[in-house]
Design a protein around this nucleic acid. Structure first.
Lengths: 192, 192
DNA sequence: TCTCCCATGTAATATGTTACATGATTGT
DNA sequence: ACAATCATGTAACATATTACATGGGAGA
């Protein structure tokens, strides 16, 4: 597990901290939340599980079923939990993939409330830097910005601003837990 | 050039419609706009140029310089322009990569104003579908949504809403060209 | 001198997809 | 009878990264 981007194997590790699952279970779960990331193919899922098993980060448990092909249920090991914690503490790469942030957000289940807040704050500072860079480019004097590039910059700025707003809003809710607010018509309890 | 995702080779083709460039030029340019996409490595850039050259989509022109290593300047061919046009008309994959949309937005230089508008509208309908799916999930009755997933959903919704707002705003400006609006303190002429 | 920019390229590696292969069970 | 879902896996391919190799010119 080299240092670098958060990838499928980390995602698997995170899911296995909830409960042991088979490859098919994982696929089904990820497909069920097919909103923010595309679920991986079996061609990457099964090899990933094998690799994790070989590295001792998960253990494989073959569960035979009557008249059915036996399932292979994987559980995370202590080494696996450690590897996951390590990856969750990585500084996210400064690109705009979002994916990494989302995955870490969903996987941050083993972290305490403070870890979640830190994660949001880290993202906030990154997006702030990003927005500042965009703002500087769009205000640059010479620089021959044509319409298409201006459009792309404007787009990037709008999304960055929206993300900052969401992060600020969410952080406020977490930092002031006494006032239970209503968000989107749904009361949201904030216990972690 | 198989059918599928917009990739580095398409990006190169798009840049070469502006003017002939060397690999180093392309790298430098992409690095200079390191806001919305990370610039490719030389390890992918040069092979991509070779592949394009072999397929006849670009032509290579070796320009010798005094006392310096000669540069290889690439120009797009008619076949290359055709391939680019084809890829720009692909329906974007329904994932959230954004990258594809941004690239196409920047590269849509050879398309007339109508093409740009169509591109924005296509994106709009996709994001609308995406947002509807998110909204449905967040309002689902049972479904045991825990805090982390709820947070991720809320995040996705906020970004989708912001993108829709930007798209609507931008489309309005394009569809009503008579009223020159001021955006971000900068007057934006809309001629394409 | 030393470092940075110019300028091209290859090799090893990582990571993923699509398509294929297999086969049982459940619902229509 | 047929399709969908369960369940695992492999092989070929696509695409990209990092690290390495090479070498000249410009400026501190």
């Amino acid at each position: 597990m080299t240092t670098g981007q958060v990838n499928l194997r980390h995602l698997i590790l995170g899911l296995l901290t909830r409960k042991p699952m088979s490859g098919y279970d994982i696929k089904r779960f990820l497909k069920s939340l097919g909103w923010l990331m595309s679920s991986p193919s079996f061609g990457s899922l099964y090899p990933a599980l094998h690799a994790l098993s070989q590295n001792g980060l998960v253990i494989e448990d073959s569960v035979s079923q009557q008249n059915k092909r036996s399932r292979k249920v994987y559980s995370i090991t202590e080494a696996g939990k450690k590897a996951l914690q390590e990856c969750l503490s990585w500084p996210a790469t400064p690109d705009i993939t979002l994916k990494s942030f989302i995955i870490q957000l969903i996987l941050a289940n083993s972290s305490p409330r403070a870890g979640l807040i830190a994660h949001l704050q880290q993202r906030r500072s990154q997006v702030a830097i990003h927005r500042a860079a965009l703002a500087q480019m769009i205000d640059a004097p010479g620089k021959e910005v044509n319409l298409k590039e201006h459009l792309a910059l404007d787009y990037g700025l709008a999304l960055a601003a929206a993300e900052l707003a969401w992060l600020d809003n969410t952080l406020n809710r977490f930092l002031q837990p006494l006032s239970m607010e209503v968000v989107g018509g749904k009361s949201t309890a904030l216990e972690v």
